[in-house]
Design a protein around this nucleic acid. Structure first.
Lengths: 234, 234
DNA sequence: TTATTAAATGTCTATTTGACAATTAATAAT
DNA sequence: ATTATTAATTGTCAAATAGACATTTAATAA
C-alpha cells in the first residue's frame, strides 16, 4: 500500500457568506456559533467537510441544514488557510458566497440555529477571520454582479425594475440613474414583462418582470468588455 | 484543552498552473511527478501544504523550488476536493495559476525537476484531475485578462505592441484587429513608449514599451462595464 | 376635480466600438 | 542609388453605447 508518508493532515471546513435583500438593504445571515471556542459568538454558517463529501457538497449541506433551502446560488470564493486562523487546531476553510431570496428563507425558517439577518453595514464583529471573509465576499459579489446577471437570485421570481434598481445600488454602494439603468437592464433581453403590477410600493404600481430563463442561461457569462466578441465566449 | 472531537483530517496540497508565452504561443510548465502513484507521469507542479505555511506560502515555495523564480504573479483559483480525486488518500488541492516570463525561467532553469514547457493546445494527458485544472485555469486566465492588465506578467520588462497583440490573441483564441487593439491598449495609459526598438521581428522594428507601474497599480482593478463609474472603484 | 406620488419613458451629446486601408520606417535586393 | 519587401504604425467613418438630464403617465388620496 502506497502512502504519502508523514505529511500533516488538517481539518477542512466551509463557511458561507449568505447574502439577502429585504427590498431596501443588503443583508447577511449570521448564526450563533454552537461549539467552543467562541461559543455563542456571531459567525458565518459553516461546518466541517465530511469524509464522503466535497467542499461544494458540504456547503450545500450546511446551507440546507441552517436555512432549510436547497438549490440556492452558491459559489466558491477562496480558501482561508493561515496556520493560526483557528486557535484550537489547524483548520482550512473554503469560503462560499450564497445569494438567496430572503423571503423564501423566512418561510422555511429552521430556527434551531439562531440565525439572524444583519445589515451588511451594521453587523456584529465575527469570530476568527470571518470579518475578512465578509469583506472579500462583498467585493467579489460586486465584481461579479457588474458582469453577470446574478443579483436576480436575491429577488423573488416576480420582481419590479425599481426593486432591481435599489438592489444594484445597494450592492455597488452608489447611485445609479433610473433612466439609464432601466435602459441597460432591459437591453439585456433577460427580462420578461408581466401584466401584473406590484401595488405595494406606490399608487401607480410597478410592473412585475420575470427572468427569461432561456436567455439567462445562454447569457450567464455575458457583459464583458476588452476583447471583441468575448460576449459570446465562455 | 478544547478539541474538534473526531472530525476527519485530510491532506492539503497546492497545484500550480504555470503559464508562459514564447512570443508565439501560450504554454504551460509541467513536471514529471516524483512520487507514487503515477510516478514519472506528467503533472502540474505541486506539493503538500506544510504545517507552518499557508496555501499561498506553499504555492510560492513550490514555484520557487521548481523554477527558481520568486515574486511571480500567483493567484488562487479554486479548491479541488472530490473525495476520490486522489486514489491513495483523501487530498484537497488548492489550484493556483501563475504567470511568468518564460525567458526569466530559462535563465534560472533549476532543472532538477524535469520541468518542460508545452504548448497549451498540445500537452500530454495529466494525472488525476489536473486536466480539469488546466481547463479551468485557462478559462479564468481569459476571463481575468479581459478585465485586468495581467498579461504583462508574461512578457519581459520591455515589450512591443505586436508581442502584446499576439499574446492577447493566444489567450483569447481569437483574432483581434491590430488597429483597434492598438487604440484600446494605448488608451489605458498603462504603457510608456521607449526610444528603443526591437529589431528582431522585422526590418522596421517595433518600439519597446514598458508598464507605467504607478498607473498599473492604480488601475489593476480597472476595465469594468455595467455599473457607471465602477472603473474607479475597487 | 385636483393633488400627490412614484413609475415609465424620451432626447441629446459625447464617447466608444468595430470594420476597414493607407502610410511609414527600416532592411534587402537590384 | 533606387526599388522592392516586410511588418509597424497610424487614420477614418458609421453605428452603438454611455451618461447627463426632465417630462409624462398611471394610479390613489384629498
Amino acid at each position: 500500500m502506497i502512502e504519502y508518508s508523514s505529511q500533516p493532515h488538517y481539518l477542512v471546513a466551509v463557511d458561507c457568506i449568505v447574502f439577502g435583500f429585504d427590498g431596501e438593504h443588503l443583508k447577511i445571515l449570521l448564526v450563533k456559533r454552537g461549539l467552543e471556542p467562541e461559543i455563542n459568538k456571531w459567525s458565518l454558517m459553516g461546518g466541517f467537510v465530511g469524509a464522503e463529501e466535497s467542499p461544494d457538497d458540504a456547503a450545500n449541506r450546511v446551507l440546507k441544514k441552517m436555512t432549510g433551502l436547497e438549490g440556492v446560488y452558491l459559489e466558491q470564493m477562496q480558501v482561508y488557510g493561515e496556520p493560526k486562523r483557528d486557535p484550537i487546531e489547524r483548520t482550512l476553510s473554503v469560503g462560499y458566497f450564497a445569494l438567496i431570496d430572503i423571503h423564501k428563507y423566512e418561510e422555511q425558517l429552521s430556527d434551531d440555529y439562531e440565525a439572524e439577518w444583519f445589515l451588511i453595514n451594521d453587523r456584529p464583529k465575527l469570530i476568527f477571520d470571518h470579518n475578512q471573509m465578509v469583506a472579500d465576499a462583498r467585493k467579489k459579489l460586486r465584481y461579479k454582479a457588474a458582469l453577470h446577471p446574478i443579483l436576480f437570485e436575491m429577488l423573488p421570481k416576480k420582481f419590479t425594475i425599481p426593486q432591481l434598481h435599489i438592489l444594484f445600488e445597494e450592492v455597488n454602494d452608489t447611485k445609479i440613474d433610473t433612466r439609464n439603468f432601466s435602459r441597460k437592464i432591459t437591453s439585456t433581453k433577460l427580462l420578461i414583462k408581466l401584466d401584473e403590477k406590484d401595488k405595494l410600493g406606490s399608487k401607480k404600481g410597478a410592473f412585475y418582470y420575470k427572468l427569461d430563463k432561456k436567455e439567462y442561461k445562454a447569457n450567464a457569462q455575458a457583459f464583458l468588455n476588452l476583447i471583441p466578441n468575448i460576449k459570446t465566449q465562455g
